[in-house]
Design a protein around this nucleic acid. Structure first.
Lengths: 230, 230
DNA sequence: TTAATAGTGTCTGTCAGACACTATGTG
DNA sequence: CACATAGTGTCTGACAGACACTATTAA
């Protein structure tokens, strides 16, 4: 068992919870109610409850439920931050997850203890929470280049143009419509909703799509760019 | 501070240490000397020592040093495994790293308590160590497709043909020589060793290369395949 | 009819893969 | 010389990006 000359690290879970409002990526912040950093806005997080949580993912789910009133969004482990000095209470470990939710779910989380902040405007956070946020943003943007991750930011049904706008907002660059649609089609993660169209103005209505059930992670990297022979 | 109705999780670090012997990827296993699983071969790991380690990476470095006699190979965080049942002693967290070393370093780790096992022949390991090994293999193979990660398996100097054989061993598929050399050149992580050639037989000697100092991670994903406009 | 966005047809430059060719050592 | 591997020149099919074109609605 552990060395007794010093206490064991304590273990927490933090969650970078992201949504897209309009063209703007926003992150959830909660008001800390105890020291250290009481009264500061931080990423939602908390202790692991060994009696209650099966594992750290379970703890992340519980934290999303209790701090933001959300259940089962896209949730994935990001990184584990640890060290003697990241928290003034001593040697600590934070297993960090990131979650993506559609705006409709984010709007259903009104609370004095939770707010949504545009990620570009978050310049400082307590502990090492800013590094966590930045790593999550980097991961999401990187996955946007080659996967269908951003579909988790979309509402139940959406048009391909709306999805393209989301990709463009995440990448900060315009995309070619033809290439975008080809790629989304190839990923095979969305399907038409037969007969459903969006008509938001004086123009042709758009076919609506939804995420396929049991859609695979769609992370399959092509065996290319290295000369892999078939 | 933590809820006192149950003890806090305990925190360990495990390392998937990989090298390539010939065409065969091998992983380091160490003999456990205490319960549970005393006498079993497991991944090298150990408790975090809060008084000694600055952070978990520091603990991984210490574990490599004390269990394998190695220092500062390529070392990167892989994933954190946690839960109530993965270790019979209770709710536990393992922050897992993976490391790559050249064969010459691996050969310098002779010990009755450490052995090298071909990864394809490892069918069972205690705790959840097999899942850790499999995730590390998956990560290494995936990064092989688009990065220069495998250079860390190479000796100080090496020819491009040798490097290609390593890539082929990792991917389990033959690569096209021209495409491979183009790609390695584009990655810009190796440089010629002027005047150094390998002459292992009755044929033209090969230019030797080494990893560039301060070579960037070379993980820059191209902004392509989505129609990103310049 | 106009305006505005949805969606498609199709060309073209680029480049990964294929592969033949040259280069250069040993025996 | 033959032989084996190192290294290069170059063609080609596929495909990402460009972009113009058609489709379809509301006003």
């Amino acid at each position: 068992m552990p060395k007794l000359d010093s206490p064991q690290p304590f273990v927490t879970v933090d969650v970078v919870l992201l949504t897209l409002k309009g063209e703007e990526l926003q992150t959830a912040l909660v008001l800390r109610d105890r020291e250290p950093q009481a009264g500061a806005w931080t990423l939602p997080g908390g202790w692991v409850h060994p009696g209650e949580d099966q594992d750290a993912l379970d703890a992340a789910v519980r934290i999303l439920r209790t701090k933001a009133g959300l259940k089962s969004p896209y949730l994935e482990q990001l990184h584990t931050f640890s060290g003697a000095h990241r928290d003034s209470r001593g040697w600590s470990v934070s297993i960090v997850y990131y979650a993506l939710i559609p705006q409709s779910l984010a709007d259903g989380t009104p609370s004095a203890r939770l707010k949504w902040a545009p990620v570009e405007q978050v310049r400082a956070l307590p502990f090492d929470h800013l590094a966590m946020l930045e790593m999550a943003l980097s991961r999401v943007r990187s996955k946007t280049l080659y996967s269908s991750l951003p579909v988790h930011l979309m509402p139940e049904t959406f048009s391909l143009s709306e999805l393209q706008h989301v990709y463009e907002a995440l990448l900060g660059a315009p995309l070619d419509k033809r290439s975008f649609r080809r790629r989304i089609d190839e990923l095979g993660v969305v399907e038409e909703v037969k007969g459903a169209f969006a008509s938001p103005g004086a123009h042709r209505p758009a076919q609506l799509y939804r995420v396929k059930r049991h859609a695979v992670g769609a992370l399959a990297l092509a065996q290319s760019n290295l000369g892999v022979k078939p």
